[in-house]
């Protein structure tokens, strides 16, 4: 059977890069989860047919350049303020689908107040939260989400709760607020997990369109450069260490 050749033509096509992704090569490190989540956002917007209606708000952090990679309208917010900016955009353009794309240094550290109050007000936006337990862009410093004992540039002997406090689960916190309609925690370390994350993002965007309240999608991710591992080892490390502390699945809705 070895002589059977699959013909490269449209009717045999199973998967190709989403047309919503630009041709620009992403600046992310090899194996970075950001690329996978960008791709999922592009695919979901394409499937829902809302390219013209979508406005994204990019954060400060590695994903600050997200606006270079997706063919949709973007705004870029000051550090941590993406939820506040998205609130303004959504309230002045109620027919648009507005989402923020933030990392843990942005959403869970400097932007905690904006995030919690946007969730509490029940703004009709979707929040995509990339949690890799580290400040990736600035060189791998400790973040509020860093695990106990995890070594980073600013906790070289591991995070000690006596000095640095405890890591916290912001998705569990916002799930307590009445304004959120859907809170989930997913990951992108296996093909099955990627499919689940895509379904979660789709549900979040549909909720934002339907005006049901704020949808919060946390994606437990890797930062292989910050963790000083190969991309494949980082996925394994994430599954063994991050996932037990940040259990995957729907928290609300």
């Amino acid at each position: 059977m070895a002589e059977l050749e699959v013909q490269i033509k449209e009717e045999n096509l199973v998967y190709r890069k989403s047309p919503l992704l630009t041709d620009k090569i992403m600046h992310y490190c090899p194996g970075c989860s950001h690329g996978t989540v960008h791709k999922l956002v592009a695919e979901v917007i394409d499937e829902l047919g809302i390219q013209e209606k979508t406005i994204g708000v990019s954060p400060v952090g590695c994903s600050v350049f997200a606006y270079n990679y997706l063919h949709i309208d973007w705004s870029q917010a000051a550090h941590g303020r993406a939820c506040a900016v998205a609130t303004g955009i959504k309230r002045t353009n109620p027919d648009k689908m507005v989402f923020t794309y933030q990392g843990d240094g942005d959403l869970a550290a400097i932007g905690t107040a904006e995030t919690i109050h946007a969730c509490n007000r029940g703004e009709n936006i979707a929040v995509i939260f990339i949690n890799n337990a580290i400040y990736g862009m600035t060189g791998g410093q400790m973040a509020p989400t860093t695990l106990i004992g995890m070594k980073t540039a600013t906790s070289p002997y591991g995070r000690d709760p006596k000095i640095h406090g405890f890591p916290y689960k912001i998705a569990d916190i916002v799930s307590q607020l009445s304004g959120t309609c859907y809170v989930t925690r997913q990951s992108v370390h296996t093909p099955a997990a990627v499919r689940k994350t895509k379904a979660a993002i789709k549900k979040a965007f549909e909720n934002a369109m339907a005006g049901k309240g704020l949808s919060f999608v946390e994606v437990v991710s890797t930062c292989n450069s910050g963790w000083k591992m190969s991309p494949v080892d980082a996925n394994k490390w994430m599954e063994e260490n991050l996932v037990p502390f940040y259990p995957l699945g729907d928290i609300k809705g």
């Binding site: 199973v14 998967y15 970075c32 989860s33 950001h34 690329g35 992108v188 296996t190 093909p191 990627v194």
Partner: peptide, 24 residues
């Protein structure tokens, strides 16, 4: 290449979307 079943798992995982998959 003979073992490929065209499941697209690789393409779904690829962060840079460089893989196109065909199946027949």
């Amino acid at each position: 290449p003979d073992a490929c079943i065209g499941c697209a798992s690789c393409a779904i995982m690829c962060p840079d979307s460089v893989i196109t998959v065909y199946r027949q």
